[in-house]
């Protein structure tokens, strides 16, 4: 069998699965285009998608230029938040009282309105990268931490019993059983928090930045250019989608057994 055909089959399958989504988005864009063209609404109020796309192409250098700091802030902030969440999740798993001490604080941190917090963080940490990293970390940290802690808890009780009967200590049980058991939960949390990450960075830039999609949107709005605001929105949406796709891809790499489990063994069973 040619290996490429094996590789192509799932690709064709996922393309087929994407058709309904493409249709619904396409329909929405067509309706929007028709309304903007025939209702007589001014393009400075509601630009047609074709105009947004055309302006995005004309201003692509500025858009790319402003997207780069946003991507940087998102990735660095997300990486920091992941590392801290991982370390803390382990501490919480080993010292259970920590959970009661820390979780209320984190839950409160999730209730803070970004609109109020973003300008304050900029006030404290300036217009540089720091406030963006902090805000991205703030919005992504908690979902990741909760997912990890829940994932450890989801370890099959019998696997733990068996490992202890084999003579494994707590650390071995954690590494051999609790950590891999948490992977599906971790990736579920990752998918949720990655969608917040870009928004968090843009919020921080909106509150004050030298460059970035957030400040670009603010300037475009102040210049009565909703088409450019929407173009930047499109870029940020595309970024989020790419990052989301990346987590799905990473999950497949990290958890090959998940897909293997859906196809039964090919080889005949021997009795």
């Amino acid at each position: 069998m040619v290996s490429s055909s094996v590789a192509l089959r799932p690709l064709a399958g996922s393309l087929a699965k994407a058709i309904p989504a493409v249709l619904s988005v396409g329909l929405l864009l067509v309706a929007w285009e028709l309304y903007a063209t025939y209702s007589g609404i001014k393009p400075t109020i509601l630009p047609a998608p074709s105009r947004v796309f055309q302006q995005a192409m004309l201003n692509r250098e500025a858009l790319i230029d402003n997207a780069i700091p946003t991507i940087g802030a998102t990735l660095i902030g997300f990486a920091c938040s992941l590392s801290v969440a991982f370390v803390l999740s382990m501490l919480v798993d080993f010292f259970w009282p920590l959970r009661r001490a820390l979780f209320p604080v984190f839950i409160v941190s999730q209730t803070l309105p970004l609109v109020a917090i973003a300008p304050l963080v900029v006030l404290w940490f300036g217009f540089g990268l720091m406030p963006k990293i902090l805000l991205v970390a703030l919005v992504t940290f908690f979902p990741t931490l909760v997912a990890l802690v829940q994932g450890y808890e989801a370890t099959e009780v019998e696997i733990g019993q068996m490992l202890r009967a084999m003579g494994a200590g707590r650390w071995r049980v954690f590494m051999l059983a609790r950590l891999p058991s948490a992977l599906p939960y971790f990736f579920a949390g990752l998918r949720i928090s990655i969608t917040y990450a870009v928004v968090g960075a843009i919020f921080a830039e909106y509150a004050g930045a030298a460059k970035g999609l957030g400040i670009y949107m603010l300037n475009a709005k102040n210049n009565f250019r909703p088409d450019l605001v929407l173009a930047a929105v499109g870029v940020s949406a595309a970024l989020t989608l790419i990052l989301f796709g990346l987590t799905v891809f990473l999950q497949r790499l990290a958890m090959p057994w998940e897909r293997a489990g859906r196809q039964p063994a090919r080889k005949g069973a021997r009795r």
Binding site: E156, E158, I159, M162, A165, G167, L176, A177, P180, G261
Partner: peptide, 18 residues
């Protein structure tokens, strides 16, 4: 205890990721 017994739990307790 660990020295004497090899324990097989009720469900197979195979690790799905291995």
């Amino acid at each position: 205890h660990g020295r004497h017994f090899a324990f097989m739990p009720q469900r197979d307790a195979l690790m799905p990721w291995r």
